[in-house]
Every structure is written in structure tokens, then in C-alpha cells.
Design a protein around this nucleic acid. Structure first.
Lengths: 205, 205
DNA sequence: ATTTATACTGTATATTTTTACAGTATATAA
DNA sequence: TTATATACTGTAAAAATATACAGTATAAAT
């Protein structure tokens, strides 16, 4: 699929937004109004380019005869899908594109509270909570967590999934496996960031 | 929401089908062609009625200015949702309406192989497989199962979720909890029906 | 220096489309 | 019997729309 110029991209976005808002595609004139062009031919030319590059189809002779072939919108918003993030050790911007292993076709309302991404579990530290290696834990980004919540915490460059327990300056990250030790952190000496909490889990057999 | 007459219903369906096929709504003339009317006013009148009853919106002055407000298509096919079945003891037609506890907004492709319904787990017999009480196990209806698969089996009026193991006439349904005994069935003496197998699991925290 | 691609303005026209108006026919309710 | 609602045909005009053609301007490539 050929690359789009900035303006072509704008026009395609305009068509998609209009379609989402009204349920039918815009006319050339409407695209112009939306994007500030003064001639319908400006829109026409961009549409022709988009057609040639395979992003849209134009039904000639039909008013508003546009249809989207390849959407620009991230797959996210069109047919809802949620990103799967590996439990990576390094890097901080968890939801950065390069950390997304794949996407699962489902929408955020799959779990009642909503969630932001799936975290792919590594290791067996939570096995007694019924959380296995490669399970996908649905994470809702929040820093508001209670003792006993299953949380994602970042300590320096390490991200971990554990039960949360904090009393005053002592943060305890408790595993669900007797072979693993509880991580104890004195928050006066070391920083720890709560990235979110688990609201659900999915597993593929 | 008011009831539709037969013709109104046909027109609404026509708009929806056209929209699905082309990506934009039909004109009055196109509806006529599709449904065999000879006057654009026939379509116009039906559209007005559909608007008055709240099924569509008409953007006046715009060509093809129709948008669907309330689709006729069943909720199922529009916004996919999958039924949740309790692990009920009695009754046989598993997917009968009365057995559906609720529906989860997701589509069958959530798990790569596809699935037909969720089974809500009762009891702790599979706890060592990381399957807890109230977990929802995604079940694909099939009778083609291998030894080691996690299957839904019906024996008389009892439905159970266990690991499958069969050798000749001996069927073993193996739990994942040392406190539970393996169910052993001689198929020459007793019937057992494989209803499906697990392809995944979801849990709400 | 000249071509080529992108990105438009401005105008005009044929065509598409909406939409109003004038009827006809039929079944159902008052 | 007379409304009233549904379900159309047929026509026509006004408005919306696609689309062709003639230009201008700019930056990058050759």
C-alpha cells in the first residue's frame, strides 16, 4: 500500500470522521468546508489520489459515492482491539508501539470496569492465584489501588505483577507462589510506580 | 419504539443492506429499483414514516442523507456478544435461552479457534489448572477431542468440565485438584456425551 | 534550467437527487 | 358510509453534486 501525503491523509481522515458522525460520506464541497479549501476540485483531486492508492473507492456518478477500503484509523477504534504488552523489563512508556506484541479483537467493556491493555504474564510467581505463564491480564491504568489489589508496579526498570500491600512507608509486593519471596520496599529509600491494576484475565488454551 | 409495517420494514432492510454493500446510503430512486417501486415518492413516504418512528434520521437537503438509528438486525450480529451458561446440573439443550445467564460483549474470534459460549465454572475441581470458581471458560462445540483436552462432558443430567482421557471403552475425566477423584466410566455400561472443549478462559477480578 | 508532483483557485455544466404536488387504489375503523 | 391509514404512480422543478477545464504557485528532482 502506497504512502499518503499529508493532505491526502487529512482528506481520508475527514471522510472517515464525517462518515462516523453522520452515517454517510461527505460531498466534495463538504470536504472543502471542513478542511478550508475553496475549490471543490481540491477535494476531487485528493479523492482521486486516494482511489489510485487503494484507500477508497469512488462510485462515479453517485453523490457521496465514497467508500473506505483501507482505513487510516488505528485498528483500535474501528473494530475494537486491545494491545498486548509483554512484561518487558526495560523501557518506560508501556503503551509505546514497539512494546505491542499483538492485538486482541475485543473491546474495553469486556471487563466491566474497562481496561487499557493486556499484560502478558512471564514466570510463575502468581500461579496460586490461577495466573499462568502467557496468560493475558487486563490492566486498567490507575494509581488508585487498595491493599489486596493485583497491581502492575514499576521499580526502576523492572515491571512486575503482584498483590499490593502498603502500610506507611513499607510497600510489599506479594507473589502467589510459596517459592517466591515478597518484595519489600521502603518508599523513603526507593521509588515505585503503580502503573495500573488487574481487572480481569484471559487465557488461550 | 413503534412497530413497523411490512413495507417499512422492507425499506429499512433495503437501506441497511445497501449501506453494508456500498458504504453509503441509497437514494430514493435506488430504493425503488431495489424494491420494484415505480415512483421515488413511494420510497420517500416510507422513509418519512421510518423517521417518524425513530428508526432512521433524514438529513434534509442532503443527497443520500440517511442514517440508521435503530437497526433491524439482531443485536447479536451487530455488536457481537457471547452467551454465558451456568454449569447447570439439569436440562439438556445447553444453549437454550433459559440457560443464558448473561452476555459478554466480545466476538467469537476473541479466541483464535472461535467458540460458541462461555461456561461459568462452579466448584474447585480444576483449581490446579488455574481455573477458579466463577471463571468463564470459552467452549467450542465439538465432539472431536483428544486426550489431554479440557472438555465439557454430559453424563446423564450432569455437566462437568474436566481433562479428557479415553482408552478403548474406558473414559476418564480427570480433575485438577488432588481432593477430587477421577471420574471413570465404562462406555459399554454408561453413556457420556462430549459437548465441546475449552479454547480459552476469562476472569473478572 | 526544466520537468514533475503536489496542492490548490475559480468557473461552469451536466447529472443526480430531493422533494413538493396531484392523483389512484385498497383495506380497516368509526 | 365516511373517514383514515397504508401504499403506491407520475410529473416536475429546485437544489445538490460530480466533474471537466483552465489556471496559479511551490518545492523537489533531473
Amino acid at each position: 500500500m502506497k504512502e499518503l501525503t499529508k493532505q491526502q491523509s487529512k482528506v481520508l481522515a475527514c471522510v472517515e470522521v464525517y462518515l462516523n458522525k453522520t452515517g454517510f460520506p461527505p460531498t466534495r464541497a463538504e470536504i472543502c468546508k471542513e478542511l478550508g479549501f475553496k475549490s471543490p476540485n481540491a477535494a476531487e483531486m485528493h479523492l482521486r489520489a486516494l482511489e489510485k492508492k487503494g484507500y477508497i473507492a469512488i462510485q462515479s456518478g453517485s453523490s457521496r459515492g465514497l467508500s473506505i477500503i483501507k482505513s487510516q484509523q488505528s485498528f483500535e477504534s474501528m473494530h475494537d482491539s486491545m494491545p498486548v504488552i509483554g512484561l518487558v523489563a526495560a523501557g518506560s512508556p508501556t503503551l509505546a508501539e514497539e512494546n505491542i506484541e499483538k492485538r486482541i479483537p475485543c473491546d474495553p467493556s469486556l471487563f466491566s470496569e474497562g481496561f487499557d491493555y493486556f499484560l502478558k504474564v512471564k514466570g510463575l510467581s502468581m500461579i496460586d492465584a490461577g495466573i499462568h505463564e502467557d496468560d493475558l491480564v487486563a490492566i486498567k491504568k490507575t494509581t488508585l489501588v487498595k491493599n489486596g489489589d493485583l497491581v502492575v508496579v514499576r521499580i526502576e526498570d523492572e515491571v512486575t505483577l503482584k498483590y499490593f500491600h502498603q502500610q506507611d512507608h513499607l510497600l510489599e509486593l506479594i507473589p502467589a507462589n510459596k517459592d517466591f519471596a515478597t518484595i519489600k520496599i521502603d518508599l523513603r529509600e526507593q521509588e515505585a510506580f503503580v502503573e495500573g491494576k488487574s481487572v480481569g484475565l484471559i487465557r488461550t488454551h
